[in-house]
């Protein structure tokens, strides 16, 4: 759902660039200087990890393949703000080096996938944790949160396209949600399985984040 250049009109991309710029600056400011010294290698390398993990494809029906987005995964392991910065870095590098997502649409993409897709998904995870109890049902919360995060991000992307007058909401919303409902299943499966296996191997990592 990386929006390319030319699909958002001037008012939409300027608005979302400003919103994401302010959000990112606030997230970076929220780190204290001494804490940051310990965090910089971690964030930079986790972002590179998310990028590398997105290279691992899984087959979807009909010869196509999907890959994992990793927003909720990063947030659950690193905390919501670090996760947001990580995902923003991934999107910036994808825009600059990989040309996946346009420069003018970068703000909108960071808002959709970086903010809504990870911090939004993470808050949903908190909500779903209230609904399910105990460690046995933990995977349910992971799966629901990551699936919903993809759907939310897709919804926002179609709203932005409609706001720019590119694609009518009546067309974009059903198609985007339809496609991403399937992609979201893959995301949910991988996020859940990966988190469960980390939980088995290094449970200490998952208790570091206070939430």
């Amino acid at each position: 759902m990386h929006i390319p250049d030319g699909f958002l009109d001037t008012k939409t991309w300027i608005t979302f660039t400003a919103v994401s710029g302010v959000g990112l600056t606030l997230a970076l400011r929220s780190f204290k200087k001494e804490k940051l010294a310990q965090r910089i290698p971690l964030i930079g390398m986790t972002a590179a990890f998310v990028f590398a993990a997105q290279m691992l494809n899984f087959p979807i029906a009909g010869g196509t393949s999907g890959h994992f987005m990793g927003g909720v995964f990063a947030c659950i392991l690193l905390g919501p703000w670090t996760g947001f910065i990580t995902m923003s870095l991934v999107l910036i590098i994808q825009c600059l080096l990989f040309q996946d997502g346009g420069l003018t649409a970068l703000g909108a993409n960071i808002f959709n996938m970086g903010f809504i897709g990870s911090v939004g998904g993470f808050s949903l995870y908190g909500l779903f944790r209230l609904l399910v109890w105990g460690d046995r049902t933990r995977p349910v919360a992971y799966a629901l949160a990551s699936w919903t995060s993809i759907m939310l991000a897709a919804t926002f992307a179609s709203f932005q396209l409609a706001l720019s007058g590119t694609i009518d909401l009546s067309v974009s919303l059903p198609t985007m949600l339809g496609v991403h409902a399937v992609i979201g299943i893959g995301e949910a499966a991988i996020t859940t399985l990966a988190l469960m296996s980390i939980w088995k191997i290094r449970p200490d990592l998952m208790q570091q984040v206070k939430y």
Partner: peptide, 14 residues
């Protein structure tokens, strides 16, 4: 396949 991919992602992260 998904289980395998989950393990791949988690060991890559670790």
């Amino acid at each position: 396949q998904f289980a395998m991919l989950g393990h791949l992602v988690s060991s890559l992260f670790l």
